[in-house]
Nucleic acid binder design. Structure first.
Lengths: 331, 331
DNA sequence: ACCGCTCATGTAATCGTTTACACGGTCCAC
DNA sequence: GTGGACCGTGTAAACGATTACATGAGCGGT
């Protein structure tokens, strides 16, 4: 127990060379069974653990992928993370998670310092120059980088919002407002575009106060409710760019004495876990988060294992409206 | 652009030795200003990035800490993660996040493969033998390991529950039920004990059906509501071991036609973001998650920077009841 | 004039693996 | 009986940094 055992210690105890120990551990089928057994016994006896830094250095790979997201606090990411971990784990890769909102130097280092083999990027707002500086493969999830041709996988934002608007119109709503996401965000833009297109398609007018600014958060949803309530001829329904902002909206309405769906119908986006247990249960656009994470991870893992190289281009999974209790016919 | 530049390339371009380049990058004050400038220019010209694997190997440290949590999907962890990232980041450490529910071999490797300098463990259910096998310092957060004397930091679970019970009793409730967490969990045990102690202290009887089984999840909260509703002489208040289960409970009550707080007062535990925006806003026991993460990270970072060695022992931050709309006098 | 100190830099060993290549033995086809 | 393919193992050269130690210059005190 004097110091950490090295591969040489194992080799000596087993009476073989370090090469054989290494092979036993990484490609057991390349050593004879009897040797393998001796080596494994020596490994157990010494309590040997391979040193990842040394291995990474020599083999020029890290056996790890990194998931980079802005604001890890966001509930939306959880399922994706779990799915990624599942896929990567069974491929023998460690998943590291880092915040994409750190300073440029640190962010740039992540993709160049040899500590990860690939990056799953969930943030469409990182500097393209930094992404370009990375020397490992990148797959974008949910969001994408305008003007940079990466491999990306996401959901049909405009289509989902379209279904929400159709649903409300079908219930008889004519004044349908839209609570948007943060202005720079690609998802915001896509969802807002989906709203405008659907309204136009249905021949419904969009009054200026029906475009409510927001940023995906509950706080911004609550603020939007205040603005909404202040207008005398209020919209009778609101499509929100996220579940969190929808919850914030409904909650603030409640505090102001407006009930959902009696006084206003509300649709969210994402289908987070809490939506189903909200009062009222939230009608929302479901995103297949598990599948999203699984697909993205699979893409990356396969690229790493030398299979198909990463083909750039945006892949899109369908989104689907889940009708629950927060929408009803206008009263 | 033929291959990745190494430190030798920079040294050659700058006309100095690799040692000087290394010193320029890690301890700039040890090289003369003019040399430093030349080296930095060469670094910029070559686009050199230090190879972390090589550095980690030679210097026997990884400049990273690992946060290990069961079920990363849990909303409760988010804030803690953010705080840890903040502290570690400004100490120049990368934060890696891994799932503590992976197979034993992988879990054990995390603390022995030289890829991390320290571990922040948020799971009290990992095998103590695995923890013992780790060769890096460990700080436990929120939970702790029974029988293993690690450094840990958490909140006053029993005290928090006690405040909740006192609050309800003060409102006039006499039949106060408890919705517990998963049976093996240390937090569950501590919170359940806090409940029993508070009830005894107040001279209130606990009927058998007032001990509702749960596991922190919304689903289990909903299931508990079904059991609660089935009893003819129902408890008039419920203290829940987590906010999620409290939300599940209230939501299911609502579906069954029971309103909160009119028909039942409910208190949660954790003070997650959604609690404040739930309808009704949830009365809950606040845990200082930000502080918890900050303290734990600071403890670990300081131990790593060679300062104070990690003193084992449980440190406890006070918890505090936040009274909102889900509790009222019994009707 | 010499000693000893500090300071900036260079030389080269070292961290612990993986793996290209070499080597000797076995087996089979001709 | 010889040549070639194949298999299991060993030898030793990487991988790319950090850092202990050596070196030599500059300088002040005696």
């Amino acid at each position: 127990m004097t110091r950490k055992p090295r591969i040489a210690d194992v080799a000596q105890l087993a009476g073989v060379s370090t090469a054989t120990v290494s092979r036993t551990l990484s490609r057991p089928d390349r050593v004879e069974e009897i040797t393998r057994a001796r080596v494994l016994r020596a490994v157990a006896a010494t309590g040997y653990r391979v040193n990842a830094a040394a291995r990474d250095l020599r083999s020029r790979r890290a056996r790890a992928i990194t998931l980079l997201a802005p604001n890890l606090a966001n509930t939306f990411f959880s399922r994706i993370v779990a799915a990624v971990q599942d896929v990567a784990g069974s491929a023998g890769l460690v998943v590291q998670i880092s915040d994409s909102q750190v300073e440029a130097a640190r962010l740039s280092a992540i993709g160049t310092d040899g500590r990860t083999d690939g990056i799953l990027l969930l943030d469409g707002a990182v500097d393209p120059a930094i992404v370009a500086s990375w020397t490992v493969p990148v797959v974008m999830v949910c969001e994408w980088l305008e003007g940079v041709d990466l491999s990306s996988i996401g959901t049909d934002n405009a289509g989902g919002i379209g279904q929400a608007v159709d649903h409300l119109a079908g219930l008889g709503h004519r004044r349908i407002a839209f609570l948007s996401g943060p202005s720079g965000n690609v998802l915001s833009v896509a969802r807002a575009a989906g709203y405008e297109a659907a309204m136009r398609r249905l021949g419904l007018a969009v009054a200026a106060p029906d475009r409510l600014p927001g940023d995906f958060t509950m706080r911004s949803g609550a603020a939007a409710a205040v603005r909404w309530a202040a207008v005398p001829d209020r919209a009778t329904a609101v499509v929100c760019a996220s579940d969190e902002s929808a919850i914030g909206f409904v909650s603030e309405c409640d505090r102001k004495g407006f009930a959902c769906p009696r006084d206003v119908s509300v649709v969210g986006f994402d289908d987070i876990e809490f939506g189903d247990r909200f009062i009222p249960p939230l009608t929302t656009v479901h995103q297949p988060r598990d599948l999203l994470g699984r697909r993205a991870a699979t893409l990356l893992v396969e690229a790493l294992s030398g299979g198909a190289p990463l083909r750039p281009g945006r892949r899109m999974l369908p989104s689907r409206l889940v009708v629950r209790g927060s929408t009803a016919a206008p009263s």
